[in-house]
Computed example of a mutant assay.
Amino acid sequence: METAKLRGIHVPLITPFTADGRLDRAALEKLAHGVLDEGAAGLVALGTTGEPGALDAAEQAAVVGICARVCAERGAALLVGVGGGATRQVAAALQDVTPGATAALTLVPPFVRPGAAGVLAHFRELTAASPVPLVAYHIPYRTGQALDAETLRELASVPGMAGVKLATGAVDPEVVALLAGELPPHFAVLGGDDVVLPPLLALGAAGGILASAHIATARWVELVDAWQAGDVARARELGHRLSRLAAALFAEPNPTVIKGVLHARGRIPSPAVRLPLLPANAASVSRALDLAVSTG
């Protein structure tokens, strides 16, 4: 299985709904092209930001199909979210990942807290079964399972692992140790906590999977480029502004504020989300809009 290194900004697309709650396929396709036009390296279909648990099977298939077609047309990377906590369940779901996907994004097993050895065994089983490389989604404040740097480096050595989406909520010592250590050349460390992506890039992360990159996509791409070019002054200044924007976009449950901003800018037909989410309040959307304007 060929594993090409993932780099740059990957946008986990929201799922646009019409005012009466139906999937808006045309808006999704337009949004996908829009973020790629601004320099995003790829798309994530059925990430958390896309409300996959609120979509039925036909809607999920439509979302993946649209994203796959756009990525194929544009030569962009496509990651597909594959959920579930039981190893056999996830292994079976991976068999249905759309042909041509760059990788599947799948959680460190949530809720069961299997320990480091169990996490490694889980991913070894999945990579053996998967037709595409995997990116582990490490988000311990949702899964309940923390992993140390040694475990993450061992995960990187598992054949078929393309990277990890790090969303630990902070730049903690384990993250610093991971980025400071030797990793296989194909294994990408991608930031997944939008507010702390700038320091992760400074430490050597290859890019990010960022819901905030729906907004000011080109500036997020510029941030990655600045760090990789060694333009520290520009990267710091831009990183500070983008972190403030990200904080505003996550002031309410994701993706409610992002949808509010996209709707206010005329990029999606409605800010609608599906229960248990509720639309963001006007003050949160207004604050994020102001910061988006000042960020450029």
Score class of each variant (00 low, 15 high):
E2Q: 15
T3G: 09
L6T: 15
R7D: 02
P12K: 13
L13M: 15
A19R: 15
A19P: 11
R22Y: 06
A26Q: 08
A26F: 02
L28W: 09
K30A: 06
L36K: 06
D37S: 06
E38Y: 11
G39I: 13
A41H: 12
A41Q: 14
L43D: 10
G47S: 06
A57C: 03
A57E: 12
A58T: 09
A58D: 10
E59A: 11
Q60W: 11
Q60M: 09
A61S: 13
A62D: 13
A62W: 05
C67V: 01
R69C: 01
C71H: 04
C71G: 00
E73C: 03
E73A: 04
A77G: 03
L78H: 11
L79K: 11
G81A: 03
G83F: 06
G83H: 08
T87S: 10
T87W: 09
T87V: 14
R88G: 02
A91P: 15
A92Y: 14
A92T: 11
L94A: 06
Q95G: 03
Q95N: 05
A103K: 04
L105E: 06
T106G: 05
L107E: 13
P109V: 04
V112K: 08
R113S: 01
G115T: 03
G115N: 02
G118L: 10
H122Q: 06
R124N: 04
E125G: 04
A129W: 11
A129V: 14
A136I: 05
R142I: 10
T143E: 07
T143G: 01
T151C: 00
E154H: 05
L155G: 00
A156S: 05
S157C: 09
S157H: 00
G163Y: 03
G169D: 02
A170M: 03
A170R: 05
A170Q: 01
D172P: 05
L179F: 12
V189W: 06
V189I: 13
L190T: 13
G191I: 07
G192K: 15
G192Q: 14
G192L: 14
V196R: 14
V196C: 03
L197R: 03
P198W: 12
P199K: 15
A206L: 01
A211M: 12
I215Y: 10
T217N: 09
R219L: 04
R219I: 03
W220R: 01
D225V: 00
D225H: 00
Q228G: 00
A229E: 00
A233H: 08
A233V: 05
R236Q: 06
G239L: 00
L242Y: 05
A246F: 12
F250T: 15
A251I: 09
E252V: 12
P253C: 13
K259C: 00
V261R: 14
L262S: 01
S270L: 07
A272Q: 09
A272K: 04
A272M: 02
R274Q: 08
R274W: 12
P279Y: 12
N281F: 03
A282H: 12
A283D: 02
S284A: 14
R287I: 07
L289M: 12
D290F: 08
V293W: 14
V293F: 11
S294F: 06
